[in-house]
C-alpha cells in the first residue's frame, strides 16, 4: 500500500511558495503582484482538480477587482471609495489564502512536519505547525455542527446577530470551544503516546526530495514576479 500522491512539489517548495507570495503581496508595493498571485492560486487549484476552490478564488478576485477599481470609476462617491479601499486591502489576503489553500489541501500534517524538519526548522515549530494543520479540520467540523445546532434551535440568522451581537457570538463560541477542546484532547493523547514530540530523531516514510517540478515552479514564479514588476498591474 503506497502513500497517496499529495501534490508534485516537495513540501519545502510549497511552504516556500506561501512565504514568498505572502511577503510579496503584503509588501507596501505588493498590489502589483496580486494578479499574478491570484492566477498562481487558481492554476494550483486546477492542478489539484479542486474545481470549487479554483472557481471561488477566481470569483473572489474578480469581485474584489470590481469593487476596488471599477465601481469608483462607474460611480465616484464616498461610499464606493470606502468599498474600494476595503477591496484593495482584502484582495491581498484573497491572493495569499488562495496559494496557502494549495499547501493545506495537498500536504498532510506528517508531510509538513517532515518537510520542515528537512528544512532544519526547529522541532517545536515543526510539531506545532503539524498539529495546527491537523486541528483546522477539527475546528471547522465543530463550528459547522454548532452552526447547524443554532439553526435548528432558531438561534442563527442576521436578525439575532444584529440585535444582540455579543450574545449571538457567545452562543456560538462557548459550545464550539467546549466541543473542540474535547476533540483535541483525544487527538493530543493519541499523538503523544505514538511518539509525537518524542526526543528521538523522527524519520519519514517517504523522505522529502526535490524533483524537476520544484526548479520549474521556481522559474515560473520568477517569471510571474518579473512580469508583475514590469507590467505594474493594479499599481
Amino acid at each position: 500500500m503506497a502513500a497517496p500522491a499529495r501534490g508534485r512539489l516537495d513540501p519545502r517548495s510549497r511552504i516556500l511558495l506561501v512565504v514568498i507570495v505572502s511577503l510579496a503581496v503584503m509588501s507596501p508595493d505588493g498590489l502589483r503582484f496580486v494578479p499574478a498571485a491570484l492566477a498562481l492560486g487558481t492554476a494550483l487549484a486546477l492542478t489539484d482538480r479542486a474545481w470549487r476552490r479554483a472557481g471561488a478564488l477566481a470569483a473572489a478576485g474578480a469581485a474584489m477587482f470590481a469593487g476596488g477599481w471599477l465601481t469608483p470609476l462607474w460611480w465616484p462617491h464616498p461610499i464606493t471609495a470606502v468599498i474600494a479601499l476595503a477591496c484593495q486591502f482584502t484582495i491581498r489576503f484573497v491572493a495569499t489564502v488562495g496559494v496557502a489553500a494549495h499547501l493545506i489541501a495537498t500536504t498532510s500534517p506528517t508531510a509538513l512536519s517532515a518537510g520542515l524538519r528537512a528544512a532544519h526548522a526547529p522541532r517545536p515549530i515543526a510539531v506545532t505547525l503539524a498539529v495546527m494543520l491537523r486541528f483546522f479540520p477539527v475546528v471547522a467540523g465543530e463550528a459547522a455542527a454548532v452552526a447547524d445546532a443554532m439553526r435548528l434551535g432558531g438561534l442563527a440568522g442576521a436578525g439575532g446577530l444584529a440585535r444582540h451581537p455579543i450574545r449571538a457570538l457567545e452562543r456560538f463560541a462557548v459550545p464550539m470551544i467546549a466541543a473542540s477542546l474535547r476533540a483535541s484532547e483525544d487527538l493530543s493523547a493519541s499523538a503523544l503516546v505514538r511518539g509525537l514530540g518524542s526526543r528521538r530523531r523522527p524519520s519519514a516514510m517517504i523522505p522529502p526530495r526535490f524533483t524537476w517540478a520544484d526548479p520549474a515552479a521556481g522559474l515560473a514564479l520568477a517569471a510571474l514576479a518579473a512580469l508583475s514588476w514590469w507590467a505594474r498591474p493594479l499599481a
Binding site: 500500500m1 503506497a2 502513500a3 497517496p4 498532510s108 506528517t110 508531510a111 517532515a114 499523538a191 505514538r194 511518539g195 509525537l196 514530540g197 518524542s198 528521538r200 523522527p202 524519520s203 519519514a204 516514510m205
Partner: peptide, 11 residues
C-alpha cells in the same frame, strides 16, 4: 498508509 507510519516515523 500515513496513519500506519505515524508512530514509526515519530520513533
Amino acid at each position: 498508509p500515513e496513519e500506519l507510519a505515524f508512530a514509526m516515523e515519530n520513533f
